[in-house]
């Protein structure tokens, strides 16, 4: 599904340059649920953004589902993001003047799907995250956990090959965090490939594999026995 080789990324700030990723090699198969761990500032988000084509690497190879991702222009990158990728952010990133259903149907709008069809589909995904009754509510009328579930529904609505979540529970209390992880596990159970950035051990152990980033390289890569979030949710 994903293969990256010798990925480098540095940020230039004035005359200084901060080398964040110093040669990342990594492979993930279909259906994996991978946690990317590391201390704050270790480059987790940077890596995820490059994988999500929101940002570009300085050098290295990246192949997504057999397609080499290189020198994409913005239009092409946008099409790939729309077709292959779903994003979940720590700060939800919902559009505040659109209600839950409209937020969820937005990626489908950019796929060119008709209004009726995409609203139906959005409602279906809202139902899967348990928020169908909240379809017409604006983001500011929802709790943090609800917002993140809407964001997950939005990420899934386009039926992406790869779901990327950057600290999806970072802004939530632990109960809500487990609810969100439960949802992510279920999506993974259905066969979707998911990468989750987190710095919380318990969240990481709800994945199937943990990668540790330190000083710009992967220092540890291990399979773990998945802790089911459902056990912690009533």
């Amino acid at each position: 599904m994903i293969e990256i080789k010798d990925l480098h990324k540095s940020y230039k700030m004035g005359s200084n340059s901060l080398h964040v990723l110093k040669g990342i090699n990594f492979k993930a198969e279909d259906g994996e649920l991978v946690a990317i761990m590391g201390s704050s500032g270790s480059g987790k988000s940077t890596l995820l953004n490059i994988l999500g084509m929101l940002d570009e690497a300085d050098s290295g190879e990246y192949v997504l589902d057999g397609i080499p991702i290189k020198n994409l222009n913005e239009t092409k990158a946008a099409k790939y993001r729309n077709k292959f990728l779903g994003f979940v952010f720590q700060s939800f990133n919902l559009i505040n003047y659109k209600n839950a259903m409209e937020n969820v149907s937005l990626p489908l709008y950019y796929q060119g799907m008709g209004r009726k069809e995409r609203n139906e589909k959005a409602l279906k995904y809202l139902e899967q995250v348990g928020l169908k009754p909240w379809a017409t509510h604006l983001p500011n009328e929802l709790s943090g956990g609800q917002k993140q579930r809407v964001a997950i529904a939005r990420a899934m609505a386009a039926e992406p090959k790869l779901l990327l979540a950057d600290e999806p529970t970072g802004a939530l209390d632990s109960t809500t965090s487990y609810e969100v992880m439960d949802l992510i596990q279920k999506i993974n159970d259905a066969g979707n490939t998911i990468l989750v950035v987190t710095h919380e051990e318990d969240i990481a152990h709800m994945c199937k594999r943990i990668i540790h980033l330190k000083d710009g390289v992967i220092v540890e890569d291990k399979k773990v026995k998945q802790v089911r979030a459902a056990d912690y949710v009533q």
């Binding site: 239009t75 993001r81 994003f87």
Partner: peptide, 16 residues
């Protein structure tokens, strides 16, 4: 800007 960033992440092209 932020909204447009979100739209881009969801697949809005520069033309969009």
């Amino acid at each position: 800007t932020k909204e447009l960033g979100i739209r881009k992440a969801l697949g809005a092209t520069p033309g969009n």
